[in-house]
Amino acid sequence: MDTLYADSVERLFSQISTPASIRAIESGQSTDAMWKEIEQSGFLDALLPESLEGAGLNLAQVFPMFLSAGRYAVPVPFAQTMLARAWLFAAGVTPPKGPISIAGLGVRADKGTVDADALPFGRVSAWVLADMGGDIALLPTAEASSLFSGGPGSLSASLQWITRPGAGIAIAASKSARVGLDQLAAASYAALIAGAAERVLAMTLDYANQRKQFGKPIGKFQAIQNQISVMAERTWASRMAAELACRSADWSPRFLMAALGKARCSEAAGLIADMAHAVHGAIGVTDEYGLHLYTRRLREWRLCAGAESYWASRIGAQLLSQPETTALAFICEELSAQAA
């Protein structure tokens, strides 16, 4: 992606997604002002063709945007809305205004009642693009009852629609896009994890170089260096895996690449958060210090759209469905950067 786009997104998020604004939204303040800034930027339609007033970019080109959203822990579904809007246009549906969450997993529909459990960004979304077990529905959150379902500062919520919402849009499987919502969400959260991991590593390095013990920065001690080196390894492995998940010539992620990217990023998320807090010591658990704004997101996004065990099992099932293919050939042909 042209550096002009990347720099513009970075500047936008640095101005609107500050620690103060994140804390305010987590405590219940409206996201309207932040979302208006994002909508006016025009980036939400970057994946749409120019004929539809988009930028005509592909998924690989907007990957830096997703990274920035993770790096600044943007408390609205920016990446998910971009992907949902592209998906809806591909399905022949004009997307509505407002933030859109993607629920590829965890949605139950029974006798007209729809439940979405622990929906990521459920507290701050206007719409939910939900897989109903075949057909897809675009559901307005305003017509649902909401139950807070996360830990402190979580933006997730469990939503329930007692009856099918009048403002909702049903999309038949025959008309829906070829890309499953689960892989769409997986690619987005892989990129968000990678971006948040970069921020956590940078904060940890800065602290280790400033905090002194026994007359020298703690970053000079071998035990701390070992932890930071492992953090750096996992952070950059996550970055590469997320980039693979988003490596596509059009707007849509490939299934196996999205599965691999999410599995690898989810696996690293908890370890990166743990080591960051270990290096920071007591200051890392204080509310005043901003580390938790990003480590909490790492833990939450690790589970969003399926954790590492879920996606590893999907990759394994794909391999087992090809009995004529060896594991090595599968890795080289299906899971490599060249394959992407």
Rank of each mutant, 00 (worst) to 15 (best):
G92E: 14
A144F: 11
A91Y: 09
V107M: 03
I136W: 05
R108W: 03
V107Y: 03
D131F: 04
L105A: 07
S149K: 07
L138Q: 06
P96R: 10
G112R: 15
G134A: 13
L138Y: 04
S125E: 09
D131N: 15
G134C: 10
G112Y: 13
A91R: 10
P140I: 09
L147W: 12
I100W: 14
L88W: 11
P95I: 07
L119Q: 04
F148E: 14
A109F: 10
G151V: 12
L129V: 01
V107R: 00
V114G: 03
G92F: 09
V114L: 11
V114H: 09
S125I: 08
L138R: 08
L129H: 12
S145H: 10
G133C: 07
P96A: 00
L147K: 14
G134M: 15
I102A: 06
F148M: 12
E143G: 10
I136Y: 10
A109V: 06
P96Q: 05
A109L: 10
R123T: 07
T141R: 06
A142W: 14
K111R: 13
S125C: 07
G151P: 09
F89W: 15
S145N: 09
I100D: 01
R108F: 02
G106V: 08
L119P: 04
G133M: 04
K97H: 14
S101R: 08
D115H: 15
F148T: 08
E143C: 12
D110M: 09
G92V: 14
V93H: 13
A130G: 11
K97R: 15
S125R: 04
L129E: 04
G122E: 01
F148K: 15
K111T: 08
S125L: 07
A109Y: 14
D110V: 02
S145G: 02
G150T: 04
G106E: 00
A137R: 11
E143S: 14
A144T: 11
P96S: 00
V114M: 09
M132S: 05
K111D: 01
D135Y: 13
G104L: 03
P99W: 03
L129A: 02
F89A: 12
A90M: 01
G134D: 11
G104S: 13
A137D: 07
K111C: 09
L88I: 06
W127N: 02
W127M: 04
D135Q: 13
L119G: 08
G98A: 05
V93I: 15
G104V: 10
R123G: 03
F121E: 03
T113A: 09
L129M: 08
P99V: 05
L147C: 05
T141N: 02
G150N: 06
G112T: 12
S145P: 07
G98F: 00
G106A: 01
D135M: 12
L147Y: 12
T94H: 15
A118K: 02
G92S: 14
T113Y: 04
S145T: 14
E143H: 14
W127D: 05
F89R: 15
S101L: 03
P96E: 06
D115K: 03
D117Y: 14
A137Q: 12
G106C: 03
L105E: 10
I102E: 06
G98C: 08
G92N: 13
P120N: 00
G106F: 10
A144I: 09
L119A: 02
S149Y: 05
D110I: 00
A109R: 12
K111E: 14
